[in-house]
Structure formats: C-alpha cells, structure tokens
C-alpha cells in the first residue's frame, strides 16, 4: 500500500531530455513557467503547448504518465475553473440566475486557466520524471551556491534533502513492520470508523518517530566518523558538466519564449 507513494517519481531512461544537465533543466523549466504565465493571448498558450508536446515526445515517457500527473490535482483545477466561470461578470452575459452570471469573459478565463495549469503540471512533471531526485538536489545546490555568500546554508539544506530522500524507503519499510506488529496485537488500522482509525494511527506514528530520532542520532555519529564537517572544502564524486546540447536546449527554450511574447504583442 505504502509502496505506491513515490515522491518526485523518476523514470530512468536515456533520452535526450534525460541526458540534459539537470541545472539547465531547472532553468529551462523556470523559463517555461514564465512563458506560460506572462503571455495572456491564446496563441502564447498554443506555443507553450507545442513546446510541451515536443519535450514529452523527446523524453520517450508514455503520455499516460502525464495524464496521471494531472489527475490528483483535478479537484483543484475544476474548482478554479468553476470559480472563474461563476464569478467573472464582465463580457457578454449568456446566463443569469440570482447573483450567478455566466459570461463570455468567464468562459474564456476559465478555459485559459485550465490549459495553463495543466501545461504547468505536465512541464514540471517532465522535470522530475527525467531527473533522479538525488541529481535534482545536487543541481539545486549548485544553482543556489551563489547564495552562500549571503550566508544561506545551501549545502546544509541540500544535504538534509538528500538524506531525507535516502531514508524514504527505509522508513516506509519500517512503517510496514510496525503496522504488522500492531495488527498482530489487535490494532484495527484498515477497518473501523474514521475516528478509531485515526486513533490507531498513533500506535504507528509514535514508534516510527522514536525510531526515526534514534536513526538520526546514529547517522550523525556515523557521518562524524567519516569526517563530515559541512560543505567547506568538500569535493564531489558526481561531476556535472554541461555539453553543447544543454546550451542548444536553453537557446530553443528562449526562442520559444521570445516567439510567444512577440506573437502576444502583435496579436493584441
């Protein structure tokens, strides 16, 4: 049951998108998000959609995975669309009942937002689908490293993040063991009313917490034994090096962004 949870799900592969330098991928994703949110003409979104489709095809990841990524956020999407539809009152009125008005502007805005957010989710899923979490953390650390001058603990944050990722499978395994042990003692976890189940969760969370703290303590000692002393003077086994294809990908993204912006201005 718990094994289905995959935070930042990653699909190993060897496509062009997989091989891009993760630092470039993050920057490209940012430009992509800007492209989606600065253009307010439907043509800008179409350019965004073409860009997304091209990237998805290049990644060789089945399209249904992207549909899956949007699914959990469906209620949120529908709510946003409904609110826009019902409460925007400018434009031609098609339907009027008490305080609710459905207008041309309302329909436009809600469809626009729906597409925009769907594209946003698909695009950012592409980043996590094609980049392993540990590489992603590494890239974030390197991109943010100029902030070290401002005394932002970039290395420490990245280290915490990667240790958290490392311990997800360990803690899931542990949770399953504790659940089995509590079930053997008669705890009802899968049945009963919501309240009894919630109460029984305490019997799982308390031992899990205690064990997590004990693990943290032991891990800290083990790290000290291996001479850990923060980010100062550290070298890395994982080398990130940018290739011409990374610059090319960045250039293409900027071209798309520029094109979308230009179209937006011309067609206004």
């Amino acid at each position: 049951m718990l094994r289905d949870i995959t935070i930042g799900q990653y699909f190993p592969g060897n496509s062009l998108i997989h091989r891009l330098d993760p630092r470039f991928k993050i920057v490209i994703t940012f430009i992509y998000i800007m492209m989606l949110f600065t253009g307010d003409h439907i043509v800008c979104l179409s350019v965004g959609a073409v860009f997304t489709a091209a990237a998805i095809i290049l990644s060789q990841i089945p399209f249904k995975m992207f549909v899956k990524s949007v699914k959990p956020l469906m209620p949120f999407l529908i709510l946003t669309a409904a609110l826009n539809l019902l409460f925007i009152s400018s434009g031609d009125v098609y339907f009027h009942w008490k305080f609710i008005k459905i207008t041309s502007e309302g329909i436009n805005v809600s469809v626009f937002m729906l597409i925009r957010i769907t594209l946003l989710i698909m695009g950012s899923s592409l980043l996590t689908y094609t980049t392993s979490p540990i590489t992603l953390t590494d890239a974030i650390e390197r991109l943010l490293s100029p902030l070290k001058k401002l005394k932002v603990p970039v290395h420490e944050l990245a280290m915490m993040m990667s240790i958290a990722l490392r311990f997800i499978p360990t803690l899931i395994e542990e949770t399953e063991k504790i659940m089995a042990a509590q079930k053997a003692r008669g705890a009802e976890i899968d049945s009963g009313s919501f309240m009894t189940r919630a109460k029984n969760m305490v019997a799982i969370l308390v031992p899990l917490f205690i064990s997590a703290f004990r693990r943290a303590d032991e891990l800290a000692t083990a790290m000290e034994c291996r001479c850990y002393r923060g980010g100062e003077g550290r070298t890395r086994l994982r080398q990130l090096c940018s290739a011409p294809r990374d610059y090319a990908a960045l250039a293409v993204t900027i071209l798309f962004y520029g094109g979308a912006a230009a179209l937006g201005i011309v067609l206004k």
């Binding site: 240790i163 490392r166 891990l219 850990y228 070298t235 086994l237 080398q239």
Partner: peptide, 23 residues
C-alpha cells in the same frame, strides 16, 4: 543508519568528499 547516500558508489565516496580528495 550509517549509509548516507541513495547511490552505493556515492556513499563509499562520502568520506573522501569530506576530506576534499580530488576527483
């Protein structure tokens, strides 16, 4: 409780990274 990284070879390198051993 003593493995730090989620990739075997990176965990083995952990101490060397801390000691600043060149690549």
């Amino acid at each position: 409780n003593q493995i730090v990284s989620s990739i075997v070879e990176e965990d083995v390198a952990f101490a060397l990274e801390n000691l600043g051993v060149p690549y």
